[in-house]
Nucleic acid binder design. Structure first.
Length: 558
RNA sequence: GCGCUUGUAGCUCAGCGGAUAGAGCGCAGCCCUGCGGAGGCUGAGGCCGUGGGUUCAAAUCCCGCCAAGCGCGCCA
């Protein structure tokens, strides 16, 4: 089992490594010039399944032209059951093709592994925290937040598949000035609902959702809060309002298939004294300076372009200071060896100073990965829809999800790489929703299930098929695609870019549709039927896994 | 002004050092007396923003320029 879980890619590069070592022993290559042996996937089928350009890189140092060098190395490659043939190709590539017998055997291996297929062990069971969304609970989520949410939840699933113990977390900013602004705005709306003249503050939140929330609270609690002193009433009402905002955020996210292992409250940083400990740590390192009545993080000394305020002259800590405390909590208190944050594009300037702060606390900044999820501009055809929380005309994430559905929404976000800005055209999303690639992929899955159902009706079972009968070109091409899932999991883990997953799913679906049109599964040939049913089953396992990793449903019927 | 990100087919986007640059949509055709046609096949369509450089090899790396987005608060 362990052997089949190892990617062929590494098996082949191992074989090549052995050949290179032999070449060195025979004096064909200098031992000093041993490079890393990377395998590539050639674009053209005639170049095999895997290829290496090693001879091209070694030629100069070896004093031999690349092609003869490639030929010499090929001659030293030990035979292996996985490899059908290894050959040199101009200008100096070494190509490998997989053995059909071995390939076909993988169908049984996949069925044996079931939904464990695709799992790899890059993480070695190490703990990893991934924090995302973390929107202030002062308003509903919009489309841009949805992108971060989908990105984070998919990454969490993939990192879990690659052998990490992943903890997903939402950081709740429930202290600070924006929260006060929220309190004041809500209190005004509450008063208005009770017929009082009370304008929303200049810098307040004017969205309709607060109007509704104010009305809701007024209905439930009457004028109770008007009878209290305002400095008592406002925070209490505010707290209730915020709880409702959070509940709403939570349910919006659930609608998109996004859940969190932990909701971490900013307030806990103060209650547990972690804020103080973090600041103490910075002070000990000599990174804190008092100037103009405020406390500054002296980051210029650490290569930053400017210093940043930690504690205002009013005595109130800045967002930056609490974020430092939060990261102190992640790295020092909870001891996560690695932390991933997904931030919106507007936080991009915050990355380098946060990393600097981590180093100042003695945490290797390489342990902190920050992914920026770029802007999403929402539009209806030509019209650009503003998504500012303060202006009234927000289209919420929930509205978008209701309109296009969670699967389309997730897939749409996942197809783009995180650092590319994107347009979300509602009109287009709706218009093309039934020609959407998601449906193409899901349809492939229902086809697989349909065939298995059909076979069952005819009394055929999945037992006992002989995979050696799978000799058709389309069958082997499909198996090749199936075997790529672990490589994709690896790629997403290394790059932290989930967009390779939808690409792969699309290719897999295409390979299956092609197989379907060219190879009749359920036929009078019972032996072939059984063998092909196995391939269908293996395909279904792999495609379902790919869809699950993306958080997209794998329907049996559509 | 400085920093980060982006510029690839009509549109939305992959590819980010390797052998003839890809997909979906759109467009022009073709394919069912069998497992769901939400499918398959064929075709048209690209000086990979631009000018230099590095390399055996550049859409991919480096530098300049042009264009777009986002940052550069004792906001978060």
């Amino acid at each position: 089992m362990e052997l089949t879980r190892r990617m062929v890619k590494y098996r082949i590069s191992e074989l090549l490594g052995e050949a290179v070592q032999q070449a060195q022993e025979k004096g064909l290559l200098h031992s000093a010039t041993t490079p890393e042996i990377a395998m590539e996937r050639p674009q053209l089928a005639e170049h095999g399944d895997y290829a290496s350009s090693l001879p091209l890189k070694l030629a100069r140092g070896a004093g031999t032209p690349p092609l003869p060098l490639a030929e010499a190395i090929v001659a030293l490659i030990p035979p292996a059951p996985e490899v059908e043939r290894a050959w040199a190709a101009p200008p100096g590539f070494i190509n490998f093709s997989l053995s059909p017998a071995w390939l076909v055997g993988q169908v049984d291996a996949i069925i044996g592994q079931e939904e464990d297929f695709g799992n790899i062990d890059l993480g070695g069971g190490s703990r990893l925290q991934i924090e995302f969304v973390s929107v202030n609970p002062t308003g509903p989520l919009h489309i841009g937040h949805g992108r971060g949410a989908v990105l984070g939840s998919t990454l969490a699933r993939v990192l879990g598949a690659s052998g990490h113990r992943v903890v997903t977390e939402y950081y709740i900013n429930d202290a600070g000035t924006q929260i006060e602004t929220f309190h004041r705005s809500l209190f005004a709306r509450y008063q208005q609902a009770l017929g009082r003249e009370s304008p929303v503050p200049e810098d307040g939140y004017v969205g309709d959702y607060l109007l509704d929330l104010g009305r809701e609270l007024a209905q439930e609690h009457g004028d109770r809060f008007l009878l209290l002193p305002q400095e008592e009433a406002m925070p209490e009402l505010g707290r209730m309002g915020m709880e409702r905002m959070l509940a709403r955020i939570r349910s919006d996210l659930e609608l998109l298939g996004v859940t969190f292992a932990r909701w971490f409250s900013e307030g806990d940083l103060y209650r547990d004294g972690q804020y103080q400990k973090a600041m103490q740590l910075l002070r000990q390192g000599g990174f804190v300076e008092e100037r103009e009545g405020a406390l500054w993080f002296a980051s210029t000394a650490l290569g930053e372009s400017k210093d940043n305020v930690l504690v205002r002259s009013t005595g109130a800590p800045t967002y930056f200071a609490t974020d430092i405390a939060y990261h102190y909590n992640k790295f020092v208190e909870r001891g996560f060896p690695r932390v991933i944050n997904i931030w919106g594009a507007d936080h991009q300037g915050h990355i380098s100073r946060m990393k600097t702060a981590a180093s100042a606390m003695g945490v290797d900044s390489a342990r902190l990965n920050v992914i920026i999820s770029q802007m999403v501009t929402l539009r209806r055809g030509e019209e650009i829809v503003k998504i500012s929380k303060r202006s009234g005309d927000i289209i919420t994430l929930r509205e978008v999800v209701d309109e296009v559905g969670p699967d389309v929404c997730r897939f749409f976000f996942l197809t783009r790489s995180p650092d590319a800005q994107m347009d979300f055209d509602l009109e287009l999303a709706k218009k093309h929703s039934d020609e959407n690639p998601v449906y193409y992929i899901q349809y492939a899955h229902t086809r697989m299930c349909g065939i298995v159902r059909h076979a069952a009706e005819k009394g055929r079972e999945l037992e006992g098929g002989d995979v050696r009968l799978l000799s058709h070109e389309a069958e082997q091409a499909l198996i090749r695609k199936l075997l790529l899932l672990p490589e994709v999991v690896e790629l997403v883990t290394v790059t932290l870019e989930p967009h390779h997953l939808p690409r792969y799913s699309l290719e897999l679906a295409a390979a299956f549709h092609d197989f379907y049109t060219r190879c009749r599964v359920v036929s009078r040939d019972k032996a072939l039927t059984d063998a092909r049913l196995k391939l269908v089953k293996a395909s279904q396992i792999v495609l379902a896994r790919a869809l699950t990793l993306m958080g997209v449903t794998a329907p049996e019927r559509m």
